[in-house]
């Protein structure tokens, strides 16, 4: 197989652009997200399950994306969900909101509306009063981004 001069140029330029741009976009935000999760859990690796994130599969408008989170818990004075951290790893800053529950909440469920800059994973990390942590991730496809404009 032989390459024409034009093909060679196209390939090298394309590859160079990919190498230069891709890591900066995809990994920088993820590092911030990992750091935020670590800070929230105190370094522990959260288990999956128990916490459920409810997001739409496709969000047409990134300016208001309905997000719900619910955690399985009896919510009594000795066994309740302390807080839930919501992160969006593709946003300029991944932090979205932190919910704090008490035994008076009755059920560890909350809904709000958030901004998403682009198609990305939304993450919920729940922390129980005994210190155990749980995580859930959902991908949301965003048609029109919700930052700047």
């Amino acid at each position: 197989m032989t390459f024409t001069r034009r093909q060679v140029f196209g390939l090298t330029a394309g590859a160079a652009a990919f190498v230069a741009v891709a890591p900066r976009i995809s990994f920088a935000a993820t590092d911030d997200t990992e750091a935020a999760i670590k800070a929230f859990t105190g370094g522990a690796e959260p288990a999956t399950g128990t916490v459920t994130l409810d997001t739409p599969e496709i969000a047409e408008n990134g300016n208001t994306v309905p997000v719900g989170v619910s955690v399985e818990s009896p919510m009594t004075a000795d066994n309740y969900v302390e807080s839930v951290l919501i992160l969006a790893e593709g946003n300029p800053s991944p932090a979205v909101a932190t919910f704090h529950f008490t035994a008076m909440s009755g059920a560890a469920e909350a809904k709000t509306r958030i901004r998403l800059a682009k198609t990305q994973n939304v993450i919920a990390v729940a922390k129980m009063n005994d210190g155990s942590t749980f995580i859930d991730r959902k991908e949301v496809k965003v048609t029109i981004g919700g930052c700047g404009g």
């Binding site: 300016n63 208001t64 994306v65 969006a88 946003n91 800053s93 932090a95 979205v96 909101a97 932190t98 919910f99 704090h100 529950f101 008490t102 008076m104 909440s105 909350a110 709000t112 509306r113 958030i114 901004r115 998403l116 919700g146």
Partner: peptide, 13 residues
Amino acid sequence: QLVFECDMDPAVS
């Protein structure tokens, strides 16, 4: 008595 509290960041609509 506190029932629910939320810290918000700029990503809230």
